[in-house]
Design a protein around this nucleic acid. Structure first.
Length: 479
DNA sequence: TCTGGGGTCCTAGGACCC
DNA sequence: TCTGGGGTCCTAGGACCC
């Protein structure tokens, strides 16, 4: 089974904000350089879609609500759904906050039905199971989910898209190739704009056309690995297993600036911030990595990357900053830098290493390893890799004090008063930010279980107004 | 209209080793 | 004396996904 929450971010917003139900809602970057993450179905009518620049969306749907997103609320809703998924089967592969594969062959309810002995019974059982699951998701989260079921990941994923939104589709065993054949090649996961163009240019417009081609022909068009899987997928074949626990292979942070940057000291300060974010997450996850990568998007939108690999894994901000700053020093920034990114890959399990190193050291020297939080590397390693840390603004031991001034331009609007954010007023209670600017915040006072609420405006520094946690959504059904 | 942020996987070339 | 073939690791770029 493949499941996919419908217009997930926008749906959570409409659930929690009664005044937005039935209205066009766009979640994503709300600044000049923002893009759309999710558009509600009402917004899609206007031609607004994912990955579209927000500026374009505003032209197409000027009356939509533009919200910057509340990831805490999305994470909570996602966790609730994933908990329900876990009741179906122990083998679940999450793809993102709103998508997952479930191996129903490992589900208790399917015992004895997946050996092909009785396809009809299997289809019936699977349909009932999926239907009940969808009911439970709606009941406990207030969200609709589309599910697809089939004999492989490929088929399940394509199926979940067919009856969207709020859909349930089962593709019976043996009917896969027939279902796929008339579809445009672009429908196959892994076929993007470039591959589509290449295939269509050679006459392969439908999945069936690819299925009828020789493997060597497909491989010659799109490459060995891609060609092999594409050819199999076109025939409805997909041997990939549902993998429950996938180790992450890289950790990165990147940021597009409001204006292009050419000043090296400003860029250096950004490298420090990004490296610190990456280090925090590495330490939180208990991993470290040997390869540090600097990503640069230039004024013309082209991307350049530079990487360096060290002998020992690193996870601390100062070391990652030093490596990234050295990489940046070799990049021409004179034409303007639009985005910087810092990443760490070639990850290894830090926690285990840490434990071992600490144990050895304790035994050998009779004291515990000292170091930064989560850091347990031998001191000489840190010195070796960190040597030559001459990054502009490279944080020394005083790092952590977060009182640094904004590195460029005017301060952005307070995080707490971004459009869509949850707030609470001392007298008027909970609400959410409709908009802010010119020293004022506009708040609508309503919650997931209230009627559409009233709007009031306040000075941005009004002490009665403060940021709030996302409102709790409680099941309305008693079934 | 002017393009986010977090990832994965693949390819190709060069260095190096046996 | 000039040269094979296979393998690993690293770097850079690119397609694709949500």
């Amino acid at each position: 089974m493949h499941l996919d929450l419908d217009a997930f971010f926008a749906a959570v917003e409409q659930r929690d904000k009664p005044s937005l139900r039935g209205k066009p809602v766009v979640v994503g970057g709300t600044g000049w350089r923002g893009v759309v993450a999710t558009a509600s179905y009402e917004a899609r009518v206007f031609g607004v879609g994912s990955a579209m620049p927000t500026a374009m969306a505003r032209r197409r749907a000027p009356n939509a609500a533009y919200l910057s997103g509340r990831f805490e609320a999305y994470r909570t809703a996602s966790a609730q759904v994933m908990a329900l998924v876990a009741e179906l089967s122990p083998v679940v592969e999450p793809l993102s906050l709103d998508e997952a594969y479930v191996d129903l062959a490992a589900a208790p309810r399917m015992a004895g039905l997946t050996d092909g002995a009785s396809p009809d019974a299997a289809v019936a059982t699977v349909r009932a199971l999926a239907g009940e699951f969808r009911d439970r998701v709606l009941q406990t989260t207030g969200l609709t989910v589309s599910v697809g079921l089939g004999t492989s990941k490929l088929v399940a994923k394509i199926a979940s898209d067919l009856d969207k939104p709020d859909g349930l589709r089962v593709v019976a065993p043996g009917t896969e190739a027939r279902l796929l054949a008339p579809m445009p090649v672009r429908k196959l996961p892994g076929v993007g704009p470039v591959t589509e163009e290449r295939l269509v240019r050679h006459g392969y417009t439908t999945v069936g056309a690819v299925a009828a081609a020789e493997l060597v022909e497909v491989v010659s068009l799109v490459g060995q690995a891609h060609g092999t899987s594409l050819h199999a997928h076109s025939r409805g074949l997909d041997p990939r297993a549902v993998v429950a626990h996938r180790e992450s292979k890289s950790v990165s942070a990147e940021e597009t600036f409001p204006v292009n940057l050419t000043d090296r000291s400003l860029l250096g300060a950004q490298v420090v911030r990004l490296a610190r974010r990456v280090a925090d997450r590495l330490q939180r996850d208990g991993v470290s990595g040997r390869t540090v990568t600097l990503k640069v998007r230039r004024h013309d939108f082209s991307i350049l990357s530079r990487s360096s690999t060290t002998a020992h894994p690193v996870d601390d901000g100062a070391t990652i900053t030093a490596a990234a700053a050295t990489l940046l020093s070799g990049v021409d920034v004179s034409d303007g830098i639009r985005l910087l990114g810092v990443g760490v890959s070639a990850l290894s399990d830090f926690a285990q290493q840490d434990l071992l190193a600490a144990l050895e050291q304790t035994e050998a020297e009779g004291h515990l390893v000292q170091g930064s939080a989560g850091g347990g590397q031998a001191d000489d390693e840190l010195e070796e890799v960190g040597a030559g840390a001459s990054a502009p603004g490279a944080a020394g031991p005083t790092a952590g004090a977060d009182a640094s001034p904004a590195p460029y331009g005017p301060l952005p609007p307070r995080q707490a008063w971004r459009p869509g954010a949850d707030v609470v007023h001392a007298e008027l209670g909970p609400g959410w930010v409709q908009g802010s600017g010119a020293g004022w915040v506009t708040v609508r006072f309503e919650g997931p279980h209230t009627p559409v609420g009233p709007v009031r405006s306040f000075r941005v520094d009004d002490e009665a107004l403060s940021p709030a946690d996302p409102p709790a959504w409680t099941s309305t059904s008693t079934v």
